[in-house]
Nucleic acid binder design. Structure first.
Length: 552
RNA sequence: UGGGGUGUAGCCAAGUGGUAAGGCACCGGACUUUGACUCCGGCACUCCCAGGUUCGAAUCCUGGCACCCCAGCCA
């Protein structure tokens, strides 16, 4: 059972009062006009999680009422993502378009009861008649058409006799309402477009408020949970359900949408990132989409955990990225086997190690989980170490390589740097070191303390790989809220850095999707094994915490 | 007097009249062949502000203030 929240408290109360006969039916109603992102995950976890815990059901329903924006690729990606999170595995997928016939009948019913009319104002005129936030609207001159005339017109709309934008069906509510949604909202519009599922059967399509509320009612949804921007739609939601012969009486409750620092979580901005080619696509590992996070190496468990941690309230919130990062680190610390990988290789020659000798040293795949086994790593005269693990003029407490300093090569030997070789420009090209032959495994024979342990790979058998180092997509915490900003200029230029890394040979037999911790560096996922450049490609999911970097 | 909503730590978030949970972040310190992990300790005398009710208020009342959303034939 998940942590409680105000919505679960409402449900507890409803059950105690035997409201809806104690049933709990929720729904997740995405519009297939983009990919799902982590904000959707919050809603998915809420709706499906409640259904699971209350022995209810959560209907997975596409809100496919606008064929001009929706397509089947989006549908497929959404299904995949929901199932990846672990829900809707039964494959029972519903569509608002399944109810177009019933919805049409409800509309006719409204007309027959004098509660809806066909308006023939132009879109511009409708806007003008609607008034403003502070001034009431005016009644349309077509508002008082007779029931017969409305019925005839609506039928002709359905039969395709009119071009788009010439007529709409409107609810007859109150043009002077302070709530603009109640100023005779449009219920149906003409669209001469074929629908991915309904085909060419319709040329009029219902709008959100009408379709959504009544789809809920048709399905017997009890608790319709949505985000807060729909709060002032609730009176209209209720109006629709109350003014037709709806088979049930669902109730809408709103909660705050997720917002995450240094990224954007709105369809509009995400679509723009993709269309402007600021990212490689919806599933670019820098995107907050579920497919992007998956490519980045995030596990479904880490995302579920994250959704649990951020909670459900009506507060405005802006969650720090560190919460998400903590979730994936926690998951991968336990599950990911360790490997050594040098992301920025600096050659090192062990002066006193015999040229033709090799040594296979045992290494643990996971320091806390012996059941994950051991492996042998090759040690030889020539190795690579991380360039950032050497400093010619180190600060105090720099427990790494420096001229004259001794460090432990993990699982191997204690070595001391004896010489620094530079090119003419002064760049460090290579290090010479001497090793202590008595320190095999990294143990000092005389018990002397060696604080530093660094990772390394043998030049003889390391696999060169392409590694994509990802960082936050934007340079500012709230890019969508940055006024007058050119979106492209807010992109973090270092959000992707590609490097050639040298990695232990185990990776050659790994399949894409395999995750590792590269020791002292971070968590990485194998993205492809035989890509265009023939080299394995890794994505960095997240770095390890680095208290040294933080201090300096 | 347009309508709707929200204010608890740097960021999330419990709390529902009985004396401020937890997580993330941060700061110590222990351990360490990953400067990781783990472990211990610290981190709101006060809950947007001001009055009021009460033995007692983050919780109730009154009045302010700040911020967010709404004028698509989008969802």
């Amino acid at each position: 059972m998940k942590t409680s929240n105000f919505i679960r408290q409402i449900i507890d109360r409803d059950i105690a009062n035997n409201k809806h006969n104690g049933r709990v039916v929720t729904r997740f109603p995405p519009e297939p006009n983009g990919y799902l992102h982590i904000g959707h995950a919050k809603s998915i976890c809420l709706n499906f999680g409640i259904a699971d815990d209350y022995n209810g059901v959560c209907n997975f329903r596409f809100d496919d009422t606008n064929p001009s924006k929706e397509n089947i690729d989006y549908v497929n990606s959404i299904i995949y993502d929901v199932q990846w999170l672990g829900y809707a595995k039964d494959g029972n997928i519903l569509h608002a378009s399944d109810y177009f016939d019933q919805l049409y009948e409800f509309a006719v019913e409204l007309i027959e009861n004098g509660k809806a009319y066909v308006d023939s104002l132009s879109p511009d005129e409708i806007r003008e008649y609607r008034g403003t936030l502070t001034e009431p609207g005016r009644n349309s001159p077509y508002r008082d058409r007779s029931i017969e005339e409305n019925l005839a017109l609506f039928t002709r709309m359905k039969d395709g006799e009119f071009p788009e934008n010439t007529h709409v069906l409107r609810a007859k509510i109150d043009m002077s309402s302070g709530n603009i949604n109640m100023r005779d909202p449009v219920l149906y519009r003409i669209k001469h477009e074929s629908h991915p599922i309904a085909g060419d059967k319709w040329c009029i399509y219902p709008l959100y408020d009408f379709a959504h509320s009544l789809s809920d009612a048709i399905e017997g949804v009890t608790h319709s949970l949505c985000t807060m921007e729909f709060e002032d739609h609730r009176p209209l939601y209720d109006w629709c359900v109350e003014n037709v012969s709806a088979p049930s009486r669902p109730e809408q409750t709103e909660f705050s949408r997720l917002s995450l620092e240094y990224t954007v979580l709105s369809k509009r901005w995400l679509t723009k990132l993709v269309e402007d080619e600021l990212v490689a696509g919806w599933n670019d590992p820098r995107m907050p989409t579920l497919s992007g996070l998956r490519n980045r190496g995030y596990t479904n468990a880490s995302i579920l955990d994250f959704c649990e941690r951020v909670g459900i309230t009506k507060n405005f919130n802006e969650v720090e990225m560190s919460v998400l990062e903590n979730c994936i680190r926690e998951d991968l610390d336990y599950t990911a086997p360790r490997l050594m990988a040098v992301l920025d290789p600096l050659p090192v020659t062990i002066e006193n190690y015999p040229e033709d000798e090799v040594d296979w040293l045992p290494a643990q795949n996971h320091p806390k989980r012996p059941e994950l086994g051991n492996r042998k790593v090759l040690f030889s005269k020539r190795i690579f170490v991380e360039r950032s693990d050497f400093l010619e003029d180190p600060p105090r407490k720099f427990f790494r390589l420096a001229p004259g300093a001794e460090v432990r090569l993990r699982y191997a030997y204690l070595v001391t740097c004896t010489e620094v070789i530079k090119d003419q420009a002064g760049n460090v090209m290579e290090l010479r070191c001497r090793y202590d032959p008595e320190s095999r495994g990294g143990f000092a024979p005389d018990g002397r303390k060696v604080r530093g342990t660094i990772h390394w790979v043998s030049q003889a058998n390391a696999i060169e790989s392409e590694v994509n180092l990802y960082d936050r997509l934007f340079t500012v915490p709230n890019p969508a809220g940055t006024k007058d900003a050119d979106f492209a200029e807010l992109i973090n230029p270092d959000s992707l850095k590609v490097v050639n890394a040298m990695i232990e040979p185990q990776i050659e037999s790994a399949t894409p999707g395999t995750r590792y911790q590269f020791e002292r560096s971070g968590y990485f996922v194998l993205a492809s094994q035989n890509g265009d450049n023939e080299k394995p490609v890794f994505h960095r999911t997240v770095t390890l915490r680095d208290s040294w970097a933080k201090r300096n």
